[in-house]
Nucleic acid binder design. Structure first.
Length: 179
DNA sequence: GCGACAG
DNA sequence: ATCTTGTCGC
């Protein structure tokens, strides 16, 4: 359990969350190195970011592990907008695994919108964090999707909320910020 | 009031 | 993030 003190500011998510994530990886490296994952999926963006360096980039560099950014909403940077044209492109995604590139005004592909399964309305926004290609990042993310959100991220979400629900409801428990 | 808004 | 409303599938 950790207590977050840094406020959430869009564009600065890494400064709020990355110290705790790095600590978890280092604890695992020390105590159960055989369980060290070959790649991390992060609830947030990689290079799809105002400064081209989101949470998934920070975590990848600090842990030296391959890292994928998986966001549930489009971060509107470098001219990318969740506008009518974008929504039309989403509508044209037909089957799970379908994608379209997220091309910024600078001409760089910052990530891919991915329909994560056949009946999902909203896409995932996949971007490179560290030591992985966008193509592999998208394929791996898709293969982790039993539901819309990839299972590693989904389970982290479900289990952390369950832990908070258990913890917060009992006497003498510190309140916890949640990110 | 309006736009923007990773979590 | 959190909250609300509505729909669908089990």
């Amino acid at each position: 359990m950790v207590s977050l003190t840094t406020p959430y500011v869009s564009g600065f998510l890494a400064f709020r969350e990355v110290p705790f994530l790095v600590e978890l990886v280092q604890q695992l490296r020390k105590k159960e190195p055989s369980l060290m994952p070959q790649v991390l999926l992060v609830d947030g963006n990689g290079v799809l970011h105002h400064q081209g360096f989101g949470l998934a980039c920070h975590l990848g560099v600090l842990t030296e592990l391959p890292c994928i950014g998986v966001a549930k909403k489009l971060l509107q940077v470098d001219g990318l907008e969740n506008n009518a044209l974008h929504k039309e492109k989403i509508r044209l995604l037909l089957a799970g695994g379908d994608t379209f590139p997220l091309m910024g005004s600078s001409g760089t592909v910052l990530g891919m919108a991915l329909k994560s399964h056949d009946h999902s309305t909203k896409p995932l926004y996949v971007s490179v964090g560290h030591k992985i290609s966008l193509e592999v990042a998208v394929r791996l993310t898709h293969r982790c999707c039993r539901f819309r959100v990839p299972e590693p991220v989904r389970q982290a979400d479900i289990r952390s909320r369950e832990h908070i629900r258990r913890t917060l409801g009992r006497p003498g428990s510190p309140a916890a910020g949640q990110g």
